[in-house]
Design a binder for these strands. Sequence first.
RNA 1: GGCCCCGUCGUCUAGCGGUCAGGAUCCAUGGUUUUCAUCCAUGUCACAGGAGUUCGAUUCUCCUCGGGGUCACCA
Length: 462
Amino acid sequence: MVVTRFAPSPTGYLHIGGLRTALLSYLWAKKNGGKFLLRIEDTDKARNSEEAAQAIVNAFEWLGLAHDGEITYQSKRDDIYAKYIQQLLHEGKAYRCYMTKEELTELRETQMANKQRTMYDGSYRDFNGTPPEGVEPAIRIKAPKSGPIVVKDGVKGTITFQAEDILDDFVIARADGSPTYNFVVAVDDALMGVTEVIRGDDHLSNTPKQIVVYEALGFEIPAFYHVPMIHNAEGKKLSKRDGATDVMAYKEMGYTPEALLNFLVRLGWSHGDQEIFSMEEMMELFNPKDINKSASIYNTEKLDWLSGHYIKNMPNKKLAELLEQYGLMLTSHDKKEILLDSLKERAKTLKDLAELTKEILATPTSYDEKAVAKAFKADAIEVLNAFSAKVSASETLHLPSDYHHLMEEVVNEMGIGFGKIGQPLRLALLGKLSGPGLDSVMAIIGKNETLQRIEHAIAANS
RNA sequence: GGCCCCGUCGUCUAGCGGUCAGGAUCCAUGGUUUUCAUCCAUGUCACAGGAGUUCGAUUCUCCUCGGGGUCACCA
């Protein structure tokens, strides 16, 4: 069974880059009928991990992703880590190091002064004398001093590190007894039965250390897929200061989960020329072996396009429901279909759509000055009055086509072009010279409101 | 600086020794639309550089250059 996991540290929200690795992990697990687990890496203790976990689950919920099983909190597994640390100690695969922080710093400075690689010198590796007084020891693992450490990566290929230039006997438990990152990651992934680790390639250089832990403990090494980073416009790793990195901020901005997920899955992964992927298609087609090797730059142009695409193709019923969060209760509006059909083509986000809708539904309070000068001359008022009279006299106005017929009549009877009525009417109804089809607008707002807007516009501008 | 990864249009990408180097987005132009948006059509734009290997390299190898990541008793 394929088991993947998402293992964020508790920052209080779900990061856009984290979401991508979470999505890829999710897809791969689901595609294989496996499990997608969630683990909170809170060995640091200080922070509010429950809240952070909740924030992540909330974001997952919005996006339609869900983890399997219970959430694992590393902070609650001290006894487990302690047990394995003891095991390594007993087996002589780890040892107590009594070097103080001061001594370590000093060692490091000497090495830097000599332009050597900074590393622990192993002075307690084979120590069996009397420990110094008053020093709580850290626990270090006995790492190989030389030789190759091979990482088989499904994205990058086989990468060979030399122990002598990357490893030292790194700390697996601090002086206070708490275990460190590279140790717990390996232990947890093994214990949770994780078979495929999909994570950012910033973890690539940690992998040899984790392999050392896997091997010392006799655990099976999972398959690794190191996904390239998402960079900001400057080409650097995406971070908090790059604006919208909180996934929920995208909800605020009016993006739909479909658009965001589709956008993210195409960052570093593709399937031929296909751009649009439903969740079902992603699950069907995704394979981590097809992930790109190079980093991609985060740029929302395509997200906007995707967002618009999904909104245009969304059923009106669903749109109406989604618009409720903007205070628009359209579900029972009798002209809902006409309204949404004519507006959803012009919106990039749900927020846009909400604003467009509010604009149409409200009587204009001002009229664009230039537009008035251009379209609201004396003859225009004559045309409007003629049209107004026809609207007023008609008893069967419901559909856009009903209004369209009246416009045609005016145009024919007065022997003018369509623009002669379109421009002033548009200004009267919307306060400006752009917007959706006028016949639709009138059908949406209805006969009385149409008449009132025309009257109001004439009064205000003549 | 050591180690590691990466390098096709501005951006996301296809390519897996022989292609007019394809698609998408963005931008521009034209068409549709009384307007705007949508939609449709067209167009501009890329293999970082240099050596090899080969009949032939975007594709394989090496070097250079460029970019990124990582080097804790953080995660």
